[in-house]
């Protein structure tokens, strides 16, 4: 496969839909609402918008420029940029490998709970049901369990097969077509969910809790870090996804115009999620005679504890359940597809073999590992630790290091020039300044949170568990990335831009 035959999206709309599909995921629905609530409510909107404009959108432009200029997956793009940078590309790929392994599990849970919603299968105690009956969570202190849970494994294998089927079809017929179908369905379902939530008794109480500003919080640096963190994790930036997708754009594509649409669309969706989720939590608090602070949750607690409880009590709860868990499933599926595509694209570039072959060469072993690690009774603590160490430390570390070398190697000017060659919205000094400042913020996020977890531990898990599946896993990703960058490229296809390769 030569570069001239690299697959492309059929046009800008196809790329934008796929990129929004990747960006809009679990984080938009279950992370943004609670992060906003915890960090000053309405006042949080100010640091959030500042973070979107100064970090999110500038980093999106940067990723697009790297992928589009070098027309390869993350490792090939970095290698073409500077042959010493290839390790960063593989590090990003390795982060996606780990995220893909556990993201599939949550996707499987969401799909299963969509089905459960029809009958409210969780009964009167959704927390007990989720922990003891559905996941049958075991004690990690007794060691990693290989007692597998059928109810988890079945949907887990199913979501892997669906995603691999889509990916095997290719960029346009698979990724683009699936996004073109799933994203409109997701948006319609979610709008219906939000409107339904707004009509629930007590919805205003939830919205008051979410949007009433606590201005004092603006002087707290941790609130600003939370805003940058939310934007950073929500937009799928700096870990290979946007580099890979941009490499499938046609050569004369408008990078910044598309980037602005993707950045604002992602935030629009999560703002809508905040309104829908807190309107629903307001209803739940009212129904139980509690304060919103007593029922507000984020992440797994919101989706699998709070929402089932709410569905039990809401009028037409089954419909709300199907809409909520269906939205979660579709949002997670398009993101999951993009995560696996980073790996497929990288391996395809390196080995120069057919996409369908690479898809199953990569996907089937990953599916097996995913089932072994997360399909057992210790899958939940495993997921929790890997999410913290790979999705937080892994992404922030690879972003910080790769941005630092790009800045230090004075490559921002080259990328800015590439963006301006084809884009409607031109970038210059302010864009470069935003990248430099964001690099510093990432360093602060990495070292402050790293020091905290290093000294205090994480969630009371045993040291051997944290050291093996947390720190050990994070370090192993870098080592494997370095080793992969030492492997020879098949048919030496690395030189694309004259004067860029030594």
């Amino acid at each position: 496969m030569s570069n001239s035959t690299r697959e492309t999206f059929s046009g800008r709309k196809a790329f934008i839909m796929a990129a929004i599909g990747s960006a809009v995921g679990l984080g938009n629905i279950w992370r943004f609402p609670y992060t906003t609530y915890e960090n000053g409510g309405g006042a949080f909107i100010i640091p959030y918008i500042v973070a979107l404009l100064t970090a999110g959108i500038p980093l999106l432009f940067l990723d697009y420029a790297i992928g589009h200029r070098h027309r390869g997956g993350a490792p090939l793009s970095y290698r073409r940029f500077n042959k010493h940078f290839e390790t960063f590309g593989w590090w990003q790929v390795m982060v996606n490998v780990i995220i893909g392994l556990y993201y599939a599990v949550v996707l499987g849970w969401a799909a299963t709970y969509t089905y459960f919603s029809f009958t409210a299968a969780w009964g009167n105690d959704p927390v007990q049901f989720f922990i003891n009956e559905y996941l049958r969570v075991g004690d990690i202190k007794q060691g990693v369990s290989f007692e597998f849970v059928g109810m988890v494994i079945g949907p887990l294998i199913a979501v892997w097969l669906v995603a691999l089927g889509v990916l095997a079809l290719g960029v346009q017929k698979g990724i683009s077509k699936s996004s073109n179908i799933l994203m409109p369905v997701l948006v319609v379902m979610f709008i219906v969910l939000v409107v339904s939530s707004l009509f629930l008794p007590g919805a205003a109480k939830g919205l008051n809790a979410l949007f009433t500003p606590d201005w004092d919080k603006l002087s707290d640096p941790s609130v600003w870090i939370a805003a940058y963190g939310q934007i950073f994790f929500s937009l799928s930036i700096c870990f290979g996804i946007m580099i890979t997708y941009a490499s499938y754009l046609k050569k004369d594509s408008d990078l910044t115009g598309s980037g602005l649409v993707v950045g604002f669309a992602n935030s629009s969706f999560e703002l809508l999620a905040g309104i829908g989720v807190f309107a629903a939590l307001g209803f739940m608090a009212t129904a139980q005679g509690q304060e919103v602070s007593e029922v507000a949750k984020g992440g797994i607690g919101l989706a699998f504890f709070a929402f089932p409880t709410l569905i039990n009590e809401a009028p037409f709860g089954e419909i709300i359940g199907v809409l909520f868990f269906g939205s979660l499933t579709f949002a997670a599926l398009t993101s999951f597809i993009s995560v696996i595509e980073v790996i497929i694209s990288a391996v395809q570039d390196k080995l120069r073999i057919r996409r369908s072959k690479v898809t199953f060469l990569v996907g089937l072993p990953m599916m097996a590992v995913s089932v072994i690690l997360f399909g057992s009774t210790t899958g939940l603590p495993m997921l929790d630790v890997m999410d913290k160490f790979v999705n937080y430390f892994g992404i922030v570390a690879v972003a910080f290091v790769s941005l630092m070398v790009i800045v230090a190697d004075e490559k921002l000017g080259v990328l800015g020039q590439h963006i301006n060659e084809t884009s409607s919205f031109k970038v210059g000094f302010v864009w470069r300044l935003c990248i430099v400042v964001t690099t510093g913020i990432l360093a602060f996020m990495l070292f402050s949170e790293g020091a905290k977890v290093f000294t205090e531990g994480y969630e009371g898990y045993p040291n051997w568990f944290i050291n093996t599946f947390g720190w050990g896993m994070s370090i192993m990703l870098v080592v494997v990335a370095f080793l992969l960058s030492r492997l020879k490229w098949k048919n030496e296809v690395i030189t694309e831009r004259k004067g860029e390769q030594s």
Partner: peptide, 30 residues
């Protein structure tokens, strides 16, 4: 809903959804 919550919700919607609409409208023809 209290006034400050309504104001902040409207501001957030106006800036973020407004940004999305403007960025779509400003996209040059392919």
């Amino acid at each position: 809903m209290n006034t400050s919550a309504i104001v902040m919700m409207v501001i957030a919607l106006a800036i973020i959804w407004g940004g999305l609409i403007i960025s779509i409208v400003k996209l040059p023809k392919e």
